[in-house]
Write a protein that binds this DNA or RNA. Structure first.
Length: 568
RNA sequence: CGGGGCGUAGCUCAGUAUGGUUAGAGUACUUGGUUUGGGACCAAGGGGCCGGAGGUUCGAGUCCUCUCGCCCCGACCA
């Protein structure tokens, strides 16, 4: 019998001073987790139960898809990371150390290399494909700045799955199956979420989607359609072509004196033209694996540069600010930079500027702009999607409007293709007896982050509100005054009966006062608390529904039925 | 890695400008008593290398130097 008096649930009235987010505050105060060091947490008994609940749901959904669970070594030989080239790319996030024989190892931050290593030379024929293997395991990433409790920890629990295919068509099928499975997991957890298009970025591959739990504290900004299912991380969001095009300024092509007019606002006011007709220049230094160069990104004045898109457009690892000195050095005048007649710098034009007319842009000379510019002359230039999607922009898939919202990334699924299998020479023989690298997919889900995400989405000013499938115990049977022997005896009987029904229950039999135990019940967030107290003398008890804090009075012999109805 | 802040009882914090009894409060904990439907009350207790190391001084939680740790903003983040 799980008696609260014998359990280890150290609740506190005070918040730990370092905690900022609701999930961090309440999970700490309610005794689910305890911090050990920066980005490292101990899971106490309640926290471990929640973790296991989430893992169980994931395992069930993976089994339903035919995915196979494995468990790979946490400590991985550094050679594997050198082979894939990621020892450099991952950099300091990889925690490295040497064993007694001076061999170099890293703590696994993700397991593409190990998983490929398991499969290569063992799966050798297309007849053995497809294959989908996964694990739920502790990962370690030596984050530059761990923060927000479980949301961004250095040591965390992740479900990581990898699939191997003989064709891209088969990968597409599996990718969709995994998306559906992940969706079911989040639905079962009771979370509001959105599946969004994502930037595949450094990991490469042909497509990726993120699973975002919607919460104000989310670190990612999403553009979501108010009408259809479209959603995307702003890093990858697309939009429909603009329809409400403002009136164009009337001007023939000319060079115009614009003394001291440097900003888009000034320019727009000076010419009484909508910023839509001005051309914004953003010069950044693109950093590559080897070397770097200055790049000028042009977009309409009403748009903002989206850095991830800009980075992808030139294949850079990083974009850093360029100083005015660097610009002057190559003969560019900040505030008056334009794309016409200049070969001083690499240019990338936003798609929305293609064939733009009646434009105002810098003349590459101090205090002069061109007006009435037809950008059709730039058709040979490098065009790319560079602009950040703004709220109110049109949905690319329907006639709806895009809105911004915040999300917590709890899952990310990728179509990898041969990004890992080719360099690691993981190959099979196809039907024609030809050697081919595996076509791969990878599917991650942050299990410990999900614990935090549930609370970020489900809490109030009194504490946690666990969803039925994530609660450490579904029902808390609270004895108001344990000195009332009849009350305690009834509560113990009720506890046994609930357990017999398969309802996970805890009995709060502590010698504390009513208010103290109620506050704990609310802080911990059991979905239902059965209050066994003085009402029992009238043959009834009360059930407090945590999500609404509503109290309902029920006959003492109908508690199980009522709980059953509440859970459905 | 840049910028800022904080390390004193299990926890949350005073005390540090101006060095000076035995370093404090609240809470938590132990014991006894009174209470018992919204974090009770009374009484008596236990608990500290004031993050660490050097230094200045007759004397350092307090001043100086160096370190380590933690948090926040930013950069970074399959």
């Amino acid at each position: 019998m799980m008696r609260f008096s014998k359990a280890y649930i150290p609740t506190t009235k005070e918040s730990p001073k370092d905690a900022q987010l609701p999930s961090h505050i309440y999970l700490s105060r309610a005794g689910f987790i305890a911090q050990v060091a920066s980005g490292l947490y101990n899971f106490l008994p309640l926290g471990k139960r929640v973790l296991r609940k989430i893992e169980t749901i994931i395992n069930e959904e993976m089994a339903a898809c035919g995915a196979l669970e494995v468990d790979l070594s946490f400590v991985t030989p550094a050679e594997l990371w050198e082979e894939s080239g990621r020892i450099e790319k991952f950099g300091k996030e990889l925690l490295r150390f040497r064993d007694r024989k001076e061999n170099l190892f890293v703590l696994g931050p993700t397991h593409e290399e190990m998983m490929v290593n398991i499969v290569r030379n063992r799966v050798t024929s297309y007849k053995q494909l497809p294959l989908n293997v996964y694990q739920i395991k502790t990962k370690f990433r030596d984050e530059a700045r761990p923060r927000f409790g479980l949301m961004r920890a250095r040591e965390f629990v992740m479900k990581d799955g990898y699939s191997f295919h003989a064709s891209t068509e088969d990968l597409d099928r599996e990718f969709d199956a995994m998306e559906a499975a992940y969706k079911r997991v989040l639905e079962r957890l009771g979370l509001k979420f959105r599946i969004v298009e994502a930037d595949s970025g450094a990991i490469g591959g042909t497509g990726s989607k993120e699973l975002m739990v919607l919460a104000q504290s989310g670190e990612d900004t999403l553009a979501v359609c108010d009408t259809c299912e479209y959603g995307a991380n702003v890093e990858a969001a697309r939009r429909a072509p603009r329809t409400d095009i403002p009136a164009a300024p009337e001007a023939d092509f000319a060079r115009f004196k614009t003394p001291g007019i440097k900003s888009i606002d000034d320019l727009s006011a000076f010419f009484h033209a909508d910023p839509y007709y001005t051309l914004k220049a953003v010069v950044l230094r693109a950093v590559y694996t080897e070397g770097s160069e200055l790049v000028c990104f042009f977009l309409r004045g009403c748009d903002e540069l989206q850095e991830v898109k800009a980075r992808n457009s030139v294949g850079a690892i990083d974009l850093v600010d360029a100083s005015e000195a660097e610009l002057s050095e190559i003969g560019l005048v900040p505030g008056f930079i334009g794309p016409l007649d200049q070969d001083k710098i690499r240019i990338v034009m936003d798609n929305d500027t293609r064939n733009a007319t009646a434009m105002i842009c810098g003349a590459n000379e101090a205090d002069y702009h061109f007006v009435g510019v037809d950008l059709g002359v730039m058709n040979e230039a490098h065009f790319a999607d560079l602009a950040a999607v703004q709220e109110g922009d049109g949905c690319p898939n329907c006639s709806g409007k895009l809105l911004h919202t915040k999300g917590i990334e709890v899952g990310h699924i990728f179509k990898l293709g041969t990004v890992y299998s080719a360099p690691l020479k993981a190959e099979f023989l196809d039907e024609n007896g030809r050697s081919q690298p595996f076509i791969m997919g990878t599917y991650g889900m942050g299990v410990s982050r999900l614990v935090a995400a549930v609370i970020e989405q489900h809490h109030d000013d009194r504490g946690c509100i666990w969803t039925p499938s994530t609660a450490p115990y579904l029902v808390n049977v609270m004895v108001s005054n344990v000195k009332e022997e009849a009350h305690l005896a009834y509560a113990e009987t009720l506890y046994e009966a609930l357990q017999k029904q398969g309802i996970e229950t805890i009995l709060d039999d502590r010698k504390e006062r009513f208010g103290f135990k109620m506050s704990d019940a609310e802080l911990i967030g059991f979905p239902y608390t059965v209050i066994v107290g003085k009402e029992l003398d009238n043959g009834s008890v009360q059930i407090m529904i945590r999500s609404t804090r509503e109290m309902i009075t029920v006959d003492a012999d109908k508690v199980i039925d009522t709980i059953g109805e509440l859970v459905q």
